[in-house]
Nucleic acid binder design. Structure first.
Lengths: 205, 205
DNA sequence: TTTGACATGTAATGAGTTACATGATTTC
DNA sequence: GAAATCATGTAACTCATTACATGTCAAA
């Protein structure tokens, strides 16, 4: 259900067409909440149907009719209500950890592959997040700039501070995953090639 | 799709009835992969239908007929194949971070509530995970004990090491969430009560 | 002339959640 | 006699994923 609030959050910065939303989404909110186009467009329509967004058909003649969305007062108030609601505790559900806990069933070589994969993925995530964090800090992030323009300078620090805080957490999380995978690779080294009688060898007692 | 592998993983330790699975699940695998009963029972049946589990109806007279499940060779090989598959990269999707990035739309007091909630939740998670990790390390964890009994002592280290490694990562992750929430509370202190012209006050430029 | 960006989706499927249903037995 | 534990699910729903569908315009 958060997809709608991710969209309201993004649109709270400025009005956008559906296409812009789908583009901007990837460059900003997606770092905290991923969603594909096939979820974005229908949800925009639903939000409009419920009066949380205003739609304006922008017919620029030639091109396909685009729609410009703007958050309504009802939309803002839904956003505030959501922020004021307790956040349901997140369920543990990461396949990488599930696999790791049962690496006994595979060879050390395979475990190493999975860990290297994990390392590469989160190192790349970390890089992207650090980059985004930097453009927030120096206020060069385009979506943020447009957002700040609407508020007095006295508010800017507060707005930026929370976003940087969120990104700090994400960068840390990615770095932690990288470190974990590294420790796993070291453990693989210590365990050696796993030859022997173990479950990994396919024999059971 | 990981629910089936979570079940195969658990049952790879020893055979169990559906009820035992649902109980043990909560005490072991659930730390890495949460699932409610309503997902467990139907999935056990599906796994049996596909030949990855053997079922034996245990009719102990009085009680309702229980079913004892045992992993088949096909089941073990499915488990190994899954471990050998690349793990799809995880999507960023934590409502706590989404909210934090848009705390500008609420008061500092509300932000503080959300952060305290986050802190409490993950502190409790950390406590539980540390406890579980300790019982793995000293081999007193009942599910682990039964598992180890089936293998020669030379294999024990390897089996335990990966599990402890997985739990290490989870403990770290929980600790990191706690630390993040703490930094957020400090930020809330620095930002003060957020009175003023900001979006949180309900006025837009 | 082909590629890529613009622009908006639908359809089918799969995964996960919540709430409910049922009845026996053991323990207090 | 009531409550907890044993034992197994179904049904309805929401949420998310994957794959596909359609067509225009601008630039190389």
């Amino acid at each position: 259900m958060s997809i709608r609030f991710a969209l309201l959050s993004l649109l709270s910065g400025r009005e956008m067409t559906g296409y812009e939303v789908s583009q901007q989404f990837g460059r900003s909110v997606a770092h905290v909440w991923h969603a594909p186009d096939s979820q974005i467009y229908p949800e925009l329509r639903r939000l409009a149907d419920e009066g949380l967004l205003d739609v304006e058909e922008v017919d620029d003649g030639a091109r396909a009719a685009k729609k410009r969305y703007r958050v309504t007062d009802a939309g803002l108030s839904a956003l505030r209500d959501w922020l004021a609601e307790p956040t349901p505790g997140r369920r543990q559900r990461d396949p990488a950890y599930l696999k790791a806990a049962y690496f006994e069933w595979t060879t050390t070589a395979t475990a190493r592959e999975r860990l290297q994969e994990h390392l590469d993925f989160h190192a790349e995530q970390q890089r992207m997040l650090e980059e985004a964090r930097a453009t927030l800090l120096d206020r060069s992030h385009p979506t943020l700039r447009r957002r700040l323009e609407r508020y007095p300078a006295s508010e800017h620090e507060r707005i930026v501070a929370w976003k940087v805080f969120a990104y700090d957490g994400l960068v840390d999380a990615a770095a932690r995953e990288v470190a974990w995978a590294r420790r796993g690779l070291e453990l693989a080294d210590r365990l050696g090639d796993g030859l022997g009688d173990g479950p990994a060898a396919g024999r059971q007692a």
